[in-house]
Design a protein around this nucleic acid. Structure first.
Lengths: 195, 195
DNA sequence: CGCGACGTTGATTTGCCTCAACGATTGTGG
DNA sequence: CCACAATCGTTGAGGCAAATCAACGTCGCG
């Protein structure tokens, strides 16, 4: 149950077993069924989530009603509405389960409490934050320097095997192209590898 | 000399005068002439810079030799190579002065020392980091949901009056379009406002 | 003055979008 | 168990925004 998040912590810091006890005391298990929403605009929940099992999609909806996927979250990913979680701003993010999912939730208050009890997690979350910042920067760079085909391949390698778990059109949306375009790119890739 | 960074601190935290003395003791003044490079790939300098006066451009160069501008920095902006500064990775970033500039430099070691002497700055820099993270997310969203004209207008409002300070083609590069396209967009905007 | 840097404009090409139609697969109710 | 709808991916046709290539105007500086 908690093994995956413990392993995840060890990847970045070296907590004591007491530290880990504090961490676990701040986590509550949540399950979400496929197609249900964990977060929606207007519902102010200051929580972040660690994915034990399943798959989520974080997206915004603009004035014209178009969806824009900003992130997917699969096993071992943290996901949150950063505006709400860190800055206490009104939420504008949708967080939808694409599969039946099991998560661990942590509230902002509990995280602050955890920082006091076990400061090592301040370092843990700061490392995650700089990592997330760098991956955003990489995504901006990709959109500047790569064509859609290369960005699709990059996407597949950063989200292990995800292209077989979620619908094509969600990936297209994340990449900022139409589902039809991505379909053509996939077809061209298959032709390349089979030659 | 230090007034602008002191004001900047007060925008986010409330340091004591002793805190500010510690901060100032960690800063060293640097001047860079126009067209000179403050950072280049392969030169490992773990520093971040606060712009007192002037304008800088941070960019990467890809395999094909194309430039990709990731950030501009004008007065009151912090700028750094995050891979190098936070994660001690080899630098791949160019940091070029677009005008004769005056900066305050702080090394990573000095920042760690500062955190110990005046922990309030840990909060200060964490707020800046989440702010930078959010602005990257906004930029990704803009590229997904807005057309080039709207992204140009958004750019102009986020970098106050910068469109009159730096060449058109640098802005085009930042937006990921050709200089010719941006020129046409600018022409169309002028026509709109004069009608 | 002459050169380089920068912006503008035109012609052509290209990648992608939109609209539309059509399988293939899956789920569901009679 | 079958019929039907819903979901998702694929393919084609037409159009548009922006890239590319090229030429030219203007400004500032050595």
């Amino acid at each position: 149950m908690y093994q995956s998040i413990i392993d995840h912590c060890y990847r970045y810091v070296t907590p004591t077993s007491k530290d880990l006890d504090f961490l676990i005391s701040k986590l509550s298990k949540i399950t979400v069924s496929k197609k249900k929403f964990l977060l929606e605009p207007g519902i102010h929940i200051r929580e972040q989530y660690f994915v034990i099992k399943g798959c989520l999609r974080a997206f915004y909806v603009d004035d014209k009603g178009n969806h824009h996927t900003i992130q997917f979250a699969i096993e071992d990913w943290w996901v949150a509405d950063f505006d709400t979680f860190y800055n206490d701003l009104p939420s504008k993010l949708y967080l939808e389960a694409l599969e039946d999912s099991t998560l661990l939730a942590m509230s902002y208050k509990d995280m602050e409490q955890l920082y006091k009890e076990a400061p090592i997690f301040e370092r843990y979350f700061r490392i995650l934050l700089t990592g997330a910042f760098n991956s955003h920067r990489k995504r901006i760079l990709s959109s500047l320097e790569k064509d859609t085909k290369d960005r699709y391949l990059e996407f597949c390698s950063s989200y292990s095997n995800i292209e077989n778990r979620i619908p094509n059109y969600h990936i297209a949306n994340y990449l900022g192209v139409s589902a039809e375009s991505l379909s053509r790119i996939r077809t061209a890739l298959k032709a390349d590898t089979s030659e």
